[in-house]
Design a binder for these strands. Structure first.
Length: 626
DNA sequence: GTAGGGTTAG
């Protein structure tokens, strides 16, 4: 079929798939309505002169465009919508307004910026409703300048007397931590309703003025549930969970938000047991947020098993998981190495058409990296419409972990090209990547560029990475010089890296000096004692080995046994060091022997130095392999 | 227009 030249619109109501076909060029602004009948396409040219009735179909051009744009947003084709708006002649201002609102509501904030800027470039001004939608986005993106611009436009257009816009502005300033502007707005308001008071209370609370927030709260005549809840949150954010509980107990209008805020408050102040008690008291009034609060708390406390069992309970009670739930669960998978479950979550996300935003995208990337599937991680990464510094950092660290140091650097440079500013975590991933791939000169280069090129102050962690990098490569002198000239005190990680370097390069002289410091800094870490003991063992200083062990017993320090786990067909298999209880222990051992033989055949020398002394040479070798 | 849940390193 020959297609006419121009823009084609297939209305979603007329077709199963909303599609825009742009054929043969961009400059045309003729519009065609395409109807689908008997799997054939019929084209009708529409009147492009104005908003009058369109040709043929009885549809006005404006309503056609409005429909089309909203179908773009429903199917998340924001780029198309933007391209379309920029290319049609004389777009009706309402189209822009709808587009800005739709992009804000879809949660893709970067698109919003594009729409908003193009709209202003088109000399189209937003209306009152658009302003009220824009302000929270400016606050969320910390777009202070843009928010202030919005403020100016509100004044310029004579909207500054609308109460809801004043409250919106107040809230914006509060969220970008400009309390004095928020206060000024509040003081200037000719009348203040409950909402304005509530906004001011949380503004004060967020900025640490809890006493004033409480005064305002106590002085309020009419309180609604948000007033009580704001007050609960103010106290929780301050860490004063007991005062929060008093407000909670006094509140005559407790709702699910009050409970959620209270539970979160307990979680954030290390009182998981009380949080869970409250959670269990709630019964059927629990909502998605309640479940998410509890699950994410378990994640933060590294109770991954409980997080998963809580999720199963959530499913049993038929509460639908949402994006936030998935972010927490993916974090659990990443820590547990549960690739099967991670894959299931990814499939669920696709099936339910959940929004893969920067949070969820990053959680997927991190899960795939940690579960051994760098290809899938890269797929997710490249498929993300917007990436933030978390996403970039995760993929850089992931590549580095896999030994793809060069690739990690490439991605880092691409990040720079795209104008994304790396942060301190990005550099940890990058430097670790250099370290694992032996890219010493590259590591030195990026370490020295951190501050002067990227404006990121090297922290003790970065020195730790550099010590690791230089240590692995055997630059012991340079390493010691680096530690000597560090602007901050070395931490346990720095000394630990140095110790590893000493062991690798068989330098017992430095090790002893270092270890004393390490034991002072981190006397509860059993690993350090074992480490020192191993150094002595490799030097045949058995008395010192004994001393080390006795010190551990004296101080009541235990070494957590090494543990690894693998998930096969949804079953977790855990292996502790020295544990022979697995039902397939013999078979596994036979297999390990085979691997060991192959490794030896390839010239691998097992590291015997790190094994305790009370076994003979042959046994040493085999206990390293296992 | 105000109140509740999310991600990155060793």
């Amino acid at each position: 079929m020959d297609l006419p030249v121009g823009w084609f619109v297939v209305l979603p109501a007329l077709s199963t798939i909303p599609v825009l076909v742009r054929a043969y060029g961009v400059s045309q602004s003729d519009l065609y309505l395409v109807t689908v009948s008997n799997s054939d396409l019929e084209f009708k040219r529409l009147d492009t002169a104005g908003a009058g009735a369109g040709a043929g179909a009885g549809v006005s051009r404006l309503s056609l465009l409005t429909n089309f744009l909203s179908s773009c947003f429903r199917s998340r084709n924001h780029g198309y919508a933007l391209l379309f708006l920029q290319n049609i002649q004389n777009p009706d201002p309402s189209l822009w307004n709808n587009a800005v609102r739709a992009s804000v509501e879809s949660g893709l904030s970067l698109d919003f910026m594009g729409f908003y800027k193009s709209m202003l470039g088109d000399n189209v001004l937003p209306d009152k409703a658009t302003f009220s939608k824009i302000l929270p986005v400016c606050a969320a993106l910390c777009e202070i300048k843009l928010g202030e611009l919005v403020h100016c436009q509100i004044v310029k257009m004579g909207f500054e007397n609308y109460l809801f816009l004043q409250t919106g502005l107040l809230d914006f300033y509060a969220k970008v931590e400009d309390l004095s502007s928020a206060r000024k707005l509040f003081d200037k308001m000719p009348e203040r309703d409950v909402v304005a008071h509530n906004a001011m209370i949380s503004a004060l609370g967020k900025n640490g003025y809890i006493v004033e927030a409480r005064k305002l709260f106590d002085g309020m005549g009419d309180k609604n549930s948000s007033s009580w809840n704001s007050m609960i949150t103010c106290y929780c954010k301050l860490g004063d969970v007991n005062s929060a509980r008093m407000i909670f107990d006094c509140s005559p209008m407790k709702n699910v938000v009050s409970w959620n805020a209270m539970i979160d408050g307990y979680c954030k102040s290390d009182q998981l047991t009380i949080a869970r008690e409250l959670f269990d008291c709630m019964g059927s009034i629990k909502n998605t947020v309640t479940w998410n609060t509890m699950i994410s708390a378990y994640i933060q406390y590294k109770e991954f098993g409980r997080a998963l069992s809580t999720f199963r309970q959530m499913q049993a009670e038929h509460v639908k998981p949402v994006e936030v739930t998935m972010v927490s669960l993916l974090s659990a998978c990443a820590h547990l190495g549960a690739l099967d479950m991670g894959n299931w979550i990814h499939a669920y996300v696709k099936r339910q058409n959940l929004k893969i935003d920067v949070y969820l995208g990053n959680a997927l990337i991190d899960m795939y990296c940690k579960c051994g599937s760098i290809e899938s991680a890269l797929d997710v990464f490249h498929g993300l419409p917007t990436k933030n510094v978390f996403c970039w950092s995760s993929i850089i660290a992931g590549l580095g972990m896999y030994g793809y140091g060069k690739e990690a650097i490439d991605v880092f440079l691409k990040m720079k090209d795209q104008g994304m500013k790396p942060d301190h975590v990005t550099f940890i991933g990058l430097l670790c990547g250099c370290s694992h791939s032996g890219l010493v000169s590259e590591g030195r280069k990026y370490f020295s560029e951190m501050l002067e090129v990227y404006g990121v102050h090297p922290g003790v962690e970065h020195y730790g990475c550099m010590v690791d990098l230089l240590g692995r490569a055997g630059f012991l002198e340079e390493l010691l010089e680096l530690i000597r000239t560090m602007p901050m005190a070395p931490n346990a990680a720095v000394w630990g890296s140095l110790l590893r370097a000493c062991r690798t390069h068989k330098d017992t002289r430095v090790s002893e000096q270092v270890t004393q410091r390490l034991l002072e800094l981190d006397p509860r870490d059993g690993g350090n004692y074992v480490f020192l003991s191993n150094i002595y063992a490799s030097a045949n200083r058995w008395n010192d080995v004994e001393l080390c062990r006795n010190l551990m017993i004296e101080r009541g320090v235990h070494k957590t046994p090494g543990c690894s786990s693998i998930e096969v067909d949804n079953v977790f298999h855990e292996f502790m060091a020295g544990d022979t209880s697995h039902p397939q222990f013999t078979q596994i051992n036979t297999f390990l022997d085979e691997i060991a033989k192959k490794l030896k055949g390839l010239g691998h020398e097992p590291d015997k130095a790190s094994v305790f002394h009370d076994i003979d040479e042959e046994e040493k070798e085999s206990s390293v392999v296992r």
